[in-house]
Amino acid sequence: MTTTQTESAGQDTNGAKDATTPTVLSLRGATATLGSRPVLRGIDVSLRRGEVVALLGANGSGKSTAVRSVIGQVPLTSGEVTLFGTPLRRFRDWARVGYVPQRTTAASGVPATVREVVSSGRLARTGLLRWPSKADRAAVQRAIDLVGLTDRAKDAVGALSGGQHQRVLIARALAAEPELLIMDEPMAGVDLASQEILAATLRDQVAAGTTVLLVLHELGPLEPLIDRAVVLRDGCVMHDGPPPKAVGQHALPGHDPELLTNQSCHPHAAGEPHRTGLLT
């Protein structure tokens, strides 16, 4: 994939994160297919330590697939993922990675309290055989406090609102005290009060030096936190640089021809018939 001038210029404007800061996560030439449909068509994304990067794009642009390939849930057909400098295949240090999945509405079959769900995130540190210590329980409590659910810790997760449920999932990821936080659409279907708490939680994490990769549909209340935006379209990186200023889906760079920095990956130029859904 060619790196355009706009792209490298975007990284240079990125303040303190210069070339000496270690790379925490990198995707190189990643391609992936779901069924027979190519979803990722050679994307390059890398995050340096302490960066907050938003992965933007319309539905079906491949942003969720990209994130799921990073955590090994979608196999790549070619290309490479490295986490903390280790190829994904040999990466074992999962306690350094906190993952917040896209919230599913389906609750599990058996009731579980907020604390029980958040505690399962701590297993990244305690592992298969070690018993949880006082420090582990304290970390779980801290994670619950961080997302403002202290007084709901003993309540069933099923009794929470969508926004509160999302906060539980974030607390679960934070319980392991990760260095890299990967979040898939953390703001989807979240009420305003929870959005503010989430933004505040994230701000604290970023201040503490956590690297964050966010999948977002639009920048929204997290905009001030974001160092860099990577815009995907049809499985290609369209833009990699400072976050677009205007808020709202139609103001995203993917909708603006001037910011289509990656002409080699134009949807109609890749030898791939442009899919319109119903007619193909």
Partner: peptide
């Protein structure tokens, strides 16, 4: 509870 998340915790 959440198989995908459990995999990311390294279990």
């Amino acid at each position: 509870q959440d198989e995908e998340f459990a995999r990311v915790t390294g279990l």
